[in-house]
Design a protein around this nucleic acid. Structure first.
Lengths: 316, 316
DNA sequence: ATGAAAGCGCTAACAC
DNA sequence: GTGTTAGCGCTTTCAT
C-alpha cells in the first residue's frame, strides 16, 4: 500500500505539501504541485479513506435503518434517499434490523463510533427514549412523526391518511370495511389505523382486521380469510398494492365482482396496482426518502410533512 | 469523544488491557476485566470504527454497484445480498452509477483506499480492462459472466435463457415474436438476446425490437408501438414483468385478447406478473445476490451459474 | 510557500 | 498477566 509518505519522498517534498495538493489548498508552487501530481499518477496512489475519516471525524456516509429487506415500501424510500445522496456525494449504507432491538442499537452506535454521519430511520424497533441519546453523535431523521426536538422528520401524516381513506370508502357507500396491516399493535402505524377506523366506522367487527400482511401471497390468504366470513366486507383497505393485488386475485377466482361486490383500496402506488387497476393511497415514499436525505445532509431537525394522495382507479 | 486512553486511565490499567477486554482476548485477570467493563459502561464508551478499520486494513463493508436506483431487478439482487450480509455482520453500501464510467471508477477506488473490502457489480459501465486492475485491492464479484480469472461471478446464463424463452414461444406456435430490452446494443445482455433471436427466428423484422424499456409505462408505450405495426407480433418477450404488465394493459385496452391474439412473456417473476397472470422467466435474482454475497465473504473467485426457470401462467 | 511534528483512536509486537 | 511503544495514513497547527 503506497501512502502519502512514499509520494512525498519520491516527489522530494514534505507530506504536508502532498496533503495540500490532495486537498486543493492554496500556497503550493506550481512546480511542486505538478511534481506531486506526476508522482501520484505514476504510483497510482489513492488516499486512505479510513485515515481521513479518522482524523476528520466525518465519513459522508449515512445509514438507512429498515425493518426487512424485502419490503417494497422500503425500496421506494431507499430510492428517494439514493436520488439525493448521489447528488451530494454521500454514501448510503443499508441496515436491516428485522425489528431486533439490539441490532438496531448496534446501528445507532455506528453514529457514536464515527462510522456514520447520520441515520435515517424508516421504522423503529426501540423506544424513542433509548434512541434519543444517540442524537448527540450525529443527525437522526425519522420517517415517522415524533415530537422529540432532537430528531428531524420527513413523514406522512398516517392518521389523517387513514382517516381520509376510510372516509373515501364510506362516501362510496361502504359500511362493512375490513383492513390489513404489516405489523400488530406493537406498531404505531397499526394503532393509528385502528383509531381512524374507530373514528369513521366505530368498533371493528370480528375478523375485519388482519395483521402481518406484506406480500402478494399474504394478500391471497387475507382475501380468503376475509371473504370466508359469514358477513363478509364490501370493501378492504390493504396496506400496499401487492397485498391488494393478492386480495383481488383471490376475489375474482371466487367470481366476486370488483368493485361491485367488493371494493379494494391499496397503498403506495406500486406497479402492480397500476397493472391491475387498483385504487391506491399514494404516500409518495420516494419523496419521503428524498426529503429525509436532504435533512440529513443539512443536519436539520425540521419536521417535514409529505402530502399523500388518493388515486382512484377501477377497484373502488 | 471519550477514547481508549480515557478508559485505561480511569480503570487504572494500560490501553492494551482495555483493547484486550474489547476484543475478548485471553490473559486478562478477572478483576481487571471487570474494572474495565465497568468504566466502559459508566462512560458509555464505543470504540472508533475508523481507527479500527485503519489499523486492520479491513472494513467488513461491501459495495454494490448498480446502474439505476429505481430498477426492480436490482432490488431483488440487493435483497439477496442483504440476506447474507446480515448473517455475517457485513455492511452493505449502495453505489448507483447511472452508467457513468467515472462514477463507477470512483467506486472502485474505494476498494483501493481501503473503505470497501469487496464490490459486487450488478451491471458494468467500464470495460473489464479498466476494472480488473482493482481486483488486487479487494474481491470483485460480477453478476454477469466473465472469463477473467481475477473476478468471481454469480451469474445467470443469459444467452441460454433467451434461447429457451424464444424456443418456448416458438413451440407455442409463434413465429412473429417481438422483444424489448432495457439498454441498447452497448449492453452485453442486448447483444445476447439479439443473437438468441437470430438463432431461433432469424432476422429481426422491422420494429420488432424496442430498447430502453424499464417501467410499467415504458411497457404501455412499447405495447402501443408494437401493436400499431401493420404486421404486428403474435408474441412479445418483455424484459421484466412490469414492462410486460404495461404491454398487457395496453393490449386489453385495445380489445386484443391474451393469449389468443397476443402472448406476453415477462421476466424476473415480480408481483405484478403474479397479479396479472403473466408468464415469466424467473432468473432468481435474489439467489444471484445471495451467492454473490457469499463469494465476497469467502473472497472466492468461483464462477457460480444460477439456474433460471420459466413459469407458465395465462399470458402465453 | 514549505516543512516538522503532534496528533486522530486504535492494535499488536515486544518486553517484563 | 500486564504495560510500553511503535505504528496505521492522514491533517493541521505552528514555525520559518
Amino acid at each position: 500500500m503506497t501512502n502519502i509518505n512514499d509520494i512525498a519522498k519520491k516527489a522530494g517534498v514534505s507530506v504536508t505539501t502532498v496533503s495540500r495538493v490532495l486537498n486543493n489548498h492554496k500556497y503550493v508552487s506550481h512546480e511542486k504541485r505538478m511534481a506531486v501530481q506526476k508522482v501520484i499518477e505514476e504510483m497510482n496512489y489513492t488516499p486512505n479513506k479510513n485515515a481521513i475519516d479518522l482524523i476528520r471525524g466525518e465519513t459522508k456516509t449515512i445509514g438507512v435503518i429498515i425493518p426487512y429487506n424485502n419490503n417494497s415500501s422500503f425500496d421506494q424510500i431507499l430510492h428517494g434517499i439514493l436520488n439525493k445522496s448521489i447528488e451530494h456525494d454521500y454514501s448510503v449504507i443499508v441496515l436491516p434490523t428485522k425489528y431486533k432491538k439490539d441490532k438496531e442499537l448496534t446501528y445507532f452506535s455506528m453514529l457514536k463510533n464515527k462510522f456514520l454521519d447520520g441515520i435515517i430511520l424508516t421504522s423503529r424497533a426501540n423506544e424513542w427514549e433509548t434512541i434519543l441519546p444517540f442524537a448527540k453523535y450525529g443527525t437522526i431523521i425519522s420517517c415517522e412523526y415524533t415530537q422529540h426536538p432532537e430528531v428531524g422528520c420527513a413523514y406522512v401524516d398516517r392518521y389523517h391518511s387513514f382517516l381520509e381513506a376510510f372516509h373515501f370508502l364510506k362516501m362510496k357507500g361502504h359500511s362493512k370495511v375490513a383492513f390489513t396491516t404489516a405489523r400488530g399493535v406493537e406498531s404505531n402505524s397499526t394503532l393509528k389505523i385502528i383509531k381512524a377506523y374507530n373514528e369513521v366506522f366505530g368498533e371493528i367487527p370480528q375478523g375485519y382486521y388482519l395483521s402481518h400482511c406484506s406480500t402478494f401471497s399474504d394478500g391471497e390468504k387475507a382475501g380468503k380469510k376475509l371473504l370466508s366470513l359469514d358477513d363478509y366486507p364490501s370493501a378492504i383497505y390493504a396496506n400496499g398494492d401487492e397485498v391488494a393485488g393478492g386480495i383481488y386475485k383471490y376475489a375474482i377466482s371466487k367470481k366476486i365482482e370488483i368493485p361491485h361486490q367488493l371494493s379494494i383500496l391499496g397503498q403506495e402506488n406500486q406497479p402492480i396496482g397500476e397493472g391491475m387497476n387498483i385504487s391506491t393511497v399514494d404516500h409518495q415514499l420516494v419523496k419521503v426518502g428524498e426529503n429525509a436525505c436532504n435533512l440529513i445532509i443539512k443536519k436539520s431537525k425540521q419536521k417535514l410533512k409529505i402530502p399523500y394522495k388518493i388515486i382512484q382507479r377501477e377497484s373502488t
